[in-house]
Nucleic acid binder design. Structure first.
Length: 276
DNA sequence: CCAAATCCCTGCGTGC
DNA sequence: TGCACGCAGGGATTTG
């Protein structure tokens, strides 16, 4: 379940291995992800030398000449593989990009929540209009305490689902929302508008620290996600509440037990004893 | 206008 | 062994 650290890990690997590669041809094997895969549009877009791989929120952007841009979202189970000549395709491979020298870039996605879309950047624009509604990047200066505090003034529900809204801050999904709130000792059930300025400052610092730490560990592997070299993301070992319902709270001296609850249809993990 | 619910989809674990 | 079922959840859409 790729959130920001997983997507960033993938971005770095793809940029490293494919920057400068020459895209020749695309083959669509299965015609539908979140939206239909248009072979002709992808072919026209992902053609020529790959100029670089960027990330915005949980989206990957593969840049090509003439402001063409391939927008990719991994959904829950999407992944890219770079294959040599003899490596076989497998079930749920949806699109194959043939590169000069015999390499192939393959997009695989069992659950088909992902997205591959051909875009053209407007003059002077860094990102396609498709991404215009996204909030600030959590690791950039625009995501700061005063910003979060002001946004929370208009929050009517609990803080945890609010943190997962991509128009508030991008890249924070279910895992990192629970983890950040635990480390901040803020209950996921707290009404968002009740958070103090000091708590907002702590939460911003903590979200940044958790995401940065996870990137350094290559992300979190729960089930499907792998780093592009096939290894597991090691941040799973550092999760303190996610998936740990029924276990003792890891905070020193806290006698609490981690609980699972459901907010907005998503599992939330927290310690009722030390998060307030 | 906002929030909660629903849907999309497959793989996996569980219980019978 | 096999089948039914529940669960996982990002994001678009629908419903309340």
């Amino acid at each position: 379940m790729p959130e920001l650290p997983e997507v960033e890990t993938i971005r770095r690997a793809l940029h490293e291995s494919l920057c400068g590669a020459f895209f020749q041809r695309v083959e669509v094997l299965a015609p539908c992800l979140r939206e239909p895969l248009l072979a002709s549009a992808l072919q026209a877009c992902a053609h020529g030398r790959l100029l670089g791989v960027r990330r915005r929120a949980k989206y990957l952007l593969l840049d090509f000449p003439a402001r063409r841009c391939l927008l990719a979202h991994l959904g829950m189970t999407g992944s890219f593989r770079v294959l040599s000549v003899k490596e076989p395709l497998v079930t749920h491979d949806h699109a194959v990009f043939f590169l000069s020298g015999g390499k192939r870039l393959v997009y695989n996605d069992p659950r088909r929540f992902g997205l591959l879309r051909a875009c053209v950047l407007e003059y002077g624009q860094s990102y396609p209009d498709d991404l215009a509604a996204l909030g600030p990047e959590p690791l950039e200066p625009a995501f700061r305490a005063a910003y979060l505090y002001e946004r929370l003034r208009r929050c009517k529900g609990p803080v945890k689902p609010f943190l997962m809204k991509q128009e508030v801050v991008v890249g924070v999904g279910n895992i990192y929302a629970s983890e950040s709130l635990f480390r901040s000792r803020i209950s996921p059930q707290r009404p968002g508008k009740d958070l103090t300025r000091a708590e907002c400052a702590l939460l911003v610092r903590t979200i940044r620290a958790v995401l940065a730490e996870s990137i350094a560990q290559g992300g979190t592997t729960i089930s499907d996600y792998r780093q592009p070299d096939g290894s597991e993301g090691k941040f799973a070992l550092r999760l303190r509440v996610y998936g740990r319902d029924g276990e003792s709270c890891v905070r020193g001296g806290c006698p609490g037990v981690v609980q699972r609850t459901v907010q907005g249809g998503r599992s939330t993990f927290f310690c009722p004893r030390c998060q307030h």
